[in-house]
Design a protein around this nucleic acid. Structure first.
Lengths: 238, 238
DNA sequence: TCAAAAGTGTTGCGGCTACACCCATGC
DNA sequence: GCATGGGTGTAGCCGCAACACTTTTGA
């Protein structure tokens, strides 16, 4: 395999997770290996990404980034926008970091952004560079990554209105209706009516109860449900 | 202005037009300037496109292509997908043409695809390289351009369900309901009920009759309508 | 027995579909 | 007067929103 990097094209992945309370984004501390006394900022966070190899499809590059980072394969990953303004590399520290990382003088990179939804607990927690931050309340990130995340979130909002399937990637196999509703509310940014939400769940036909309830909770225990992929496919055909 | 081309990133524009009968795509004969005796094929058609200049936003590059070709500015133009497989330049003749065109040895180009909707009669007909072909019945094109057009068409199908506004770019200022319906049917690839279609038109609130009817037609003359942008915006606010 | 979250039904409105006939014009 | 496409109304179904109380558990 020819591993020469194409210094003009990169991929960046906006990886969403859900911890039951809030919507998270996976970020990388790019200065993790730098000794503290040399750091100008305590944290310099960026989206996981990579230059594209010379003989690699751009989609493959995004898949590779995800795998290197989380160990996961066959993950839902969707190209959503290209960020190609020549001044997206305008911060001095970003240019310095890029040069150190790639050993090339780079003035301009066009990046193809993807988003992905994964269960937080599935990521290898061993990688110390990885942090999950609240997607709605982020600090200033490297490059134009705040903007990329915002556009990714808007895309996700639109998508889940038509393809709710994606959301189940964020939930554990067994989940309660309340968890699912909370997730919808977080992403859409508004409250939903609980009764109507339950009706739409049972109408869906592919969210089915499992033989298990919550335990040790100080209220009526909730029924667990799972996403049935086979029933989902059946409904599509109708 | 630094006019150095970035040989790794290009833009391609799928420009749709409508002649009242069928949906068209604008294509370029890339061998227009080659003397006939040197041609291997009578026509070698491709999408209008360009490499991206080193100091140019990718969206700007797409806008530039459209302007160079049609003279039009401020045109609706939407980024819809990146085609980045390393073997999208696999045909020998494509590589030869690329090298002649750019004077560079190029093995791999990632292209960002845009689609656009314009009124056919607005294009400068002086440019002999330009041809409009039926979008549903295309010959084999250069590179992976057949595939790009197909994906563009699918994107358009999805978009018009939510943002019908785009379609008015394809119609003359004054148009009949039947023309609008024909356009919908062509893009969606299915027949629509005429009565229900008219109802949705009058419900829309932003398609308004003008004081003019068809003339010299051998049937009841149709009312002309126009798209009212101001009414469209008002409805959005509700 | 209290606090806390789970779970449950009905009604009205508006939008979507299906469907058949008369109208105005040019030839 | 006839061929051609323009234009019109209704009824049933379905999905969506609004809305308040009972149930089950742990503490």
């Amino acid at each position: 395999m020819n591993v020469r990097l194409n210094p003009h094209v990169s991929v960046d992945c906006v990886i969403f997770g859900f911890d039951g309370q809030s919507l998270k984004v996976l970020l990388i501390d790019r200065n993790y290996d730098i000794p503290p006394e040399k750091l100008t900022k305590p944290l310099t966070l960026k989206l996981p990404g990579s230059m594209v190899y010379d003989d690699e499809d751009v989609d493959t590059a995004a898949t590779r980034v995800l795998k290197e980072l989380t160990g996961l394969e066959n993950i839902f990953l969707k190209q959503f926008h290209v960020f190609g303004s020549p001044d997206r590399l305008k911060k001095e520290e970003d240019l310095i970091w890029l040069q150190a990382e790639t050993h090339m003088k780079i003035k301009r990179v066009v990046t193809i952004a993807y988003y992905s939804l994964i269960k937080i607990h599935k990521t290898t927690p061993s990688d110390g560079r990885v942090v999950w931050l609240d997607a709605m309340n982020l600090p200033e990130l490297a490059f134009d990554h705040n903007n990329i995340i915002q556009v990714g979130l808007q895309t996700l909002q639109k998508e889940i209105q038509h393809e709710p399937i994606e959301l189940f990637e964020l939930l554990p196999k067994k989940f309660t209706i309340r968890q699912l509703q909370t997730l919808y509310e977080l992403i859409l940014g508004k409250k939903l009516d609980n009764r109507n939400f339950r009706k739409s769940v049972s109408r869906s036909g592919y969210i089915v109860p499992v033989n298990e309830k919550e335990r040790n909770v100080a209220h009526k225990p909730a029924q667990y449900y799972r996403f049935s992929h086979s029933r989902y496919l059946k409904n599509q055909k109708l």
